[in-house]
Design a protein around this nucleic acid. Sequence first.
DNA 1: TATTGTTATACTCTATAACTATA
DNA 2: TATAGTTATAGAGTATAACAATA
Lengths: 163, 163
Amino acid sequence: MISTTDDYRSGTLPDVSSEVDGPGPELDSRLGYLLKHAQQRLSGLTAEALAPYGIAGRELAVLLVLDGAEPASQLEVANRLGVDRTTMVAMLNALQDKGLVRRNPHDSDRRKNIVELTAAGKDTLGKARQAGDDAERRFLADLDAKSAEQLRRALQIVVRSKS
Amino acid sequence: MISTTDDYRSGTLPDVSSEVDGPGPELDSRLGYLLKHAQQRLSGLTAEALAPYGIAGRELAVLLVLDGAEPASQLEVANRLGVDRTTMVAMLNALQDKGLVRRNPHDSDRRKNIVELTAAGKDTLGKARQAGDDAERRFLADLDAKSAEQLRRALQIVVRSKS
DNA sequence: TATTGTTATACTCTATAACTATA
DNA sequence: TATAGTTATAGAGTATAACAATA
């Protein structure tokens, strides 16, 4: 485990100068590079972990939202995920084709579709959630527990930031 | 400023339950969601900051690598950035059309192009680097200095992680 | 035979504009 | 008039396959 409490320029990290494909000193402390590659690495680990269940990481996110408290329309699910409603249509089509979700007309507002998990959807969600958690653990494997939680917390803050 | 040293489930964060478009409890502690949206937010801030200089965040990364110690071939630049060499061709074409980089044949291996910054490229890099740093500062504005450096350090570690 | 740069092509993810139906 | 879902379409970003020049 490696602590993250030192200043990032202190030079106590493992030497990587022998790596030909590393970012080099120009990039390895730039957040743009770091966030992009962190996201790509987690995406890869997640895709691999979810492959046995036939869903992508984005689809797991949809299932998680649908498992939440109140029934949600397509637009509400899209807003929670931060995607356009046209993007939501395609994602729900794919999940519906896999038998994991169901569209039901809203009782009093027939413009809306209430989206629900099917029994198969709940079953897949249970397994996929665990697989996704495993992928997160592998992603965080080189951080100690405290640093991992600080990372999660810091990301929550910058994502919620409005400016 | 908000500290990140508490456990992320402790509930000391600002209440966001009134936000209709927030992720909700199902997603706001999942790293996949957090990394994706953090990256999107920083990308937006960076694009905005770099717009006056006519370059994208990805292009700033190329200029930064070219400003590094040794002269680099197209393939070496691509490897440092973690992109395919065919992707590099298009990026360098764009930067060359803007007059910011120059391709020179390698002295002894004529398969290679050594890529260099032009005078205009160095000038643009100087201004764009500052603008990029400003974007990072806005991105991190809600974190205290220590938490911001811990975030950077933790990302370096997970990005370098091999498993 | 292997490597570098290049081109053509295709794939993934996403959004915009325009349509239908409802409100 | 405005909203929810849908469709067609287009753009950004990326990679794979195949080729020419060179090693």
